[in-house]
Simulated scan of single mutants.
Amino acid sequence: MSMRLILLGPPGAGKGTQAARLASRLGVPAISTGDIFRANVSEGTELGQLAQKYMDAGEYVPDEVTNQMVAARLSQPDAEAGFLLDGYPRTEAQVAELDSILEANGHQLSHVVELTADTDEVVARLLNRAKEQGRADDTESVIRRRLDVYAEQTAPLVQTYADRGLLVQVDGMGEVDEVTARLTDALGVTTD
């Protein structure tokens, strides 16, 4: 099934888990800017070093760096038939850049899915993940800062995409399988 999707939601809402599940069902790549940033950090690339400074402070990596990275990724052959973006766009400027990228390739978005989640539950999830995975970027103060930045910069995109008639909201709280079922139902994706 060919779909071009964006998955929005606060950090810890389960976007990464659900993106992987949904992309697998759709047969499209799940493209996560967070994973790409972390890979660059672990490889010690110039982009990774720059991204690390922002990530450690709980801030977003600048648009110009992120836009170039996403444009390059969307031009790869596996994304031609569709994709699921997790973590992009995060700002109105990135929305405009994504619109340009898609238009240049003769494509358009199918849906924008917002996973909604309770703030305190999200903080608890991320603190637990930090313990399990040893992720230094997931301290409580950084998590709360990331949630503030999300509310300031990314949450307004929900209205932008709602105004375009593309927004689908799905409750991201509960067991992983329950959330996946809600997502596939909301998008009309048949399950195996």
Rank of each mutant, 00 (worst) to 15 (best):
N67L: 03
F37G: 02
E43R: 13
G165N: 05
L127E: 10
A130S: 15
L115A: 06
A151S: 07
Q133E: 04
A39D: 10
G27S: 04
D185R: 14
R144Y: 00
E103H: 08
V70H: 00
A93L: 11
A151Q: 15
F37L: 02
L127A: 07
D99N: 07
A51R: 08
P29T: 02
Q94Y: 11
G12S: 12
R25E: 13
A13K: 05
A124N: 13
T45W: 11
E80K: 15
V113L: 09
G9F: 09
T191M: 10
L98E: 00
G9D: 03
Q169S: 15
G106R: 06
G165T: 11
V179I: 12
D138I: 10
A39N: 05
L127D: 08
E140C: 10
P11T: 07
A155M: 01
Y60E: 01
E175D: 08
Q153N: 04
A81Q: 06
V168W: 00
R4M: 13
S2P: 15
G174F: 15
G172Q: 13
E121G: 15
T66R: 00
S42V: 06
L5M: 04
N105A: 14
D56C: 01
R73K: 13
L157Y: 06
G34P: 01
V61S: 10
L127I: 14
I36N: 10
V41P: 12
D177E: 09
L5E: 05
M1Q: 06
E64C: 10
Q76Y: 07
G58P: 09
G12K: 02
D185Q: 14
V149K: 04
A96L: 07
D35V: 10
S141T: 12
T139N: 09
R21W: 11
T45L: 13
R144L: 00
D78R: 14
V122K: 01
G58F: 04
R144P: 00
L147P: 09
L166G: 12
A71I: 06
Q18S: 05
V142N: 11
A19I: 07
H111V: 04
V189W: 15
D99T: 08
E114M: 04
D163L: 00
R135H: 01
L127M: 15
V158I: 07
E152C: 07
N128P: 03
R73F: 09
N128G: 14
L22Q: 11
D118K: 07
D86S: 12
A136P: 01
D99M: 12
A19V: 09
T191D: 11
Q133H: 11
T33H: 12
R38Q: 02
G165D: 00
N40R: 07
Y88L: 01
G14F: 06
L7Y: 01
T119Q: 06
V168Q: 03
E97K: 10
G44K: 14
L74V: 00
H107K: 05
E64L: 13
A79E: 12
E64F: 09
I101M: 14
V112W: 05
P10E: 03
